[in-house]
Every structure is written in structure tokens, then in C-alpha cells.
Amino acid sequence: MSSISHHDRQTTSLANKIQEVTGVALQNCYQCGKCAAGCPVAGDMEMPSCQVLRLLQYESPDYDRRVLESESIWLCLSCDTCHSRCPQTINTPKVMYFLREEAVRQGLAHPKSKDAQAFHKAFLGSVARHGRLHEIGMLMNYKVRTGHLFQDMTLGSKLYQKGKLELLPHGVKDKAAVKKLFKRTTGNKE
């Protein structure tokens, strides 16, 4: 429980930032719960989507922090079921995406999100280098980053037997174009 007074309201609340960046107006949510009702993982979240939106509606630093530190925002599958059925057409997956990025930026991301972050880094690294994803290379990178060295090992060898893993990367020819593209949009080569 957190006591809310007028002074707790921030001028740059998460809700404000979300509206600015994603265009989603959180005040449109009237808490009907239809999102949580259809969410495949609502039962596994410590706070389902509607509660995340509710906390953000307060625009209080305490609640914003609670949201950013939660595991819930990392469990969202981006399956868009909530968005497609929302009577107010609120793009909750987009909000969740933003919240993850914000959590990382503020250093508040839930410990369990480390793997996800590592995955995205490994993935982007591979794409930046080759222009296409090289699955083995990416997976090796990911395993080194996370320490899950032996996870899915048997699966990996099975995949290889089935001819589903390429040992050598097949990248794009115009690697310079991809590198430039990364540089222009992220400011580094990643």
C-alpha cells in the first residue's frame, strides 16, 4: 500500500512518457479487465496487464517503480489478444514493450529479464555482423552471456542431425549497407 497525495504526482510520469513515445493514452483504460481475462499468462503474473495499467494511471513514483521492477512486464507474449479485444483499443503490448526498455534504462529490470536482454543482444549482434541471423553463432553467444551452457544441449544436437542448424553463417552480400544502417539508427555498430 502506498499513500497517494497530490504532491506525489510527477510531471514526467511513466504514463506521460508512454503517451509521448507510444501514443497510448492510459487514461482511456476503464479497468474492465478484459485484457487480463483473455491473457494467456495473466494467471502467471504477479500483476496482470489491467493492474499494471491501473498503477500507471496513478502517476506516482512508487507505483511507477513497482511496475518497472515487476516480472509481469517481461512475461507479456506480445500475442496482441488483449489489444484486439480491448473495448478502448488500448495497445497494451506496445506499453509492455516500452516498459521493458524503460526498466532496462533505469536499471530496474527484474533479475529474470537478464536472459531476455542477453538474447536480444546476441540476436542483434549476429544480425549486425551478417545481416541475417546465424542461429548457432547467436545461440553460442547467448549461452556465454547467460551461463546456460548446457541447456537444450541434446536438442541442439538433434536439430543438427535434422539438418536444421547451419555451422557457417550465410550473410547478406552488401554487409556495408547493413553496418551503415545500424550505425545510423543506433549510433554504434553493436
Binding site: Y97, R100, E101, Q117, F119, H120, F123, L124, V127, L181, F182, R184, T185, T186, E190
Partner: peptide, 9 residues
């Protein structure tokens, strides 16, 4: 993964 880095990317 791409828009974890940037929307523009």
C-alpha cells in the same frame, strides 16, 4: 529484438 535497440533500427 531490433526495437529493443531502437524503433528506427
Amino acid at each position: 529484438s531490433a526495437h529493443v535497440a531502437s524503433e528506427e533500427l
